[in-house]
């Protein structure tokens, strides 16, 4: 029993990270049709800036941790806004070229991170409480899992509130459904583009700081490896669906953890298998638009 509980919470923690990456990816794709390969770079930048904050202000306290979350999210948001405004916008509606731009950006950014911070992982320490455990049903669950889960839930709630209750949220929801009709109502949908990129970048940057604590290190490859699972999550969840991304993130991560433990480290294959099954029986994903 205790193993199951431990795996469940570890899976939920990882699912929280997947969600933080996938939320932005899914909204960006849903609204703009852009597959953003640079999203991993937003995350990595968030992680490194968070690490720099921790390094400079002494890592072992909550103030530093909260500050690093804030700065990491801001760094991710700024990078993302820059990407949309300077690069993506010029290629409006040319989806393949937009993907190519983000591929090039991701190559260049990761190489630059290599140059600045080195290719080896740098280790990070958070508040001492992170490494302690809390006992739940006999399982000793590391506390950093809870931090990831709580943060992701808060982000999800904030996003849902924003989408439901603000004019821009409404524009984004409408745009995911039918972008050209939004412009045909006299709305400049490009502002919403910059906004979803910024929000997605902030979530990824936040995810980067949390991921660095979850894994215990930062490396230039961090974003890339999470990004691939986030892609899988967005496809399984249904492109453009935030709720779908949340459900799929948890499902994928928990499945991965259990398969890794009980099926001899096959977590990644089981996830790809799940993707294949979803594509065979429900090509538009769990909550995707049926077309």
């Amino acid at each position: 029993m205790s193993t199951v509980v431990l795996l469940l919470f570890t899976g939920l923690g990882l699912g929280a990270l997947y969600f933080l990456v996938a939320a932005g990816l899914s909204l960006i794709y849903g609204l703009m049709g852009v597959l953003n390969f640079a999203h991993g770079a937003f995350l990595t930048l968030g992680a490194f800036t968070g690490w720099e904050i921790a390094r400079r202000t002494g890592s072992d306290n909550w103030g530093t941790f909260l500050l690093s979350l804030l700065v990491g999210a801001a760094a991710g948001a700024a990078f993302a806004a820059f990407t949309e405004f300077v690069l993506i916008r010029r290629l409006y509606q040319r989806h393949i070229e937009q993907v190519l731009i983000t591929v090039g950006l991701s190559l260049a950014a990761v190489a630059l991170f290599d140059g600045i911070w080195g290719t080896d992982p740098v280790f990070i320490q958070g508040p001492a409480w992170f490494k302690e455990t809390t006992e739940i049903l006999g399982a000793r669950v590391p506390n950093d899992r809870f931090v990831c889960i709580i943060a992701a839930v808060l982000v999800l709630l904030a996003l849902v509130f924003f989408l439901k209750n603000t004019r821009y949220g409404m524009i984004i929801r409408a745009g995911v459904e039918n972008r050209s009709m939004v412009t045909a109502l006299g709305i400049d949908v490009r502002k919403a583009f910059t906004l979803v990129f910024t929000i997605g970048g902030a979530a990824a940057g936040l995810g980067g700081v949390l991921a660095s604590h979850y894994f215990g290190y930062v490396s230039p490859m961090l974003g890339g490896s999470l990004l691939i699972f986030a892609f899988i999550v967005t496809v399984i969840g249904g492109l453009g669906s935030l709720t779908g991304a949340a459900i799929a993130a948890v499902a994928v991560a928990v499945l991965q953890q259990f398969a890794n433990f009980y099926l001899g480290g096959t977590g990644d294959f089981v996830v790809v298998l799940a993707l294949a099954l979803v594509l065979l029986f429900r090509p538009s994903g769990l909550l995707g638009r049926t077309s």
Partner: peptide
Amino acid sequence: EPTFKIIRSGVGYVPEDREVFSKL
């Protein structure tokens, strides 16, 4: 001009097939 500016300059558009936002 881009579509949104044309609309703002005083065009009301009622598209074929209505195109309401079904999830709003």
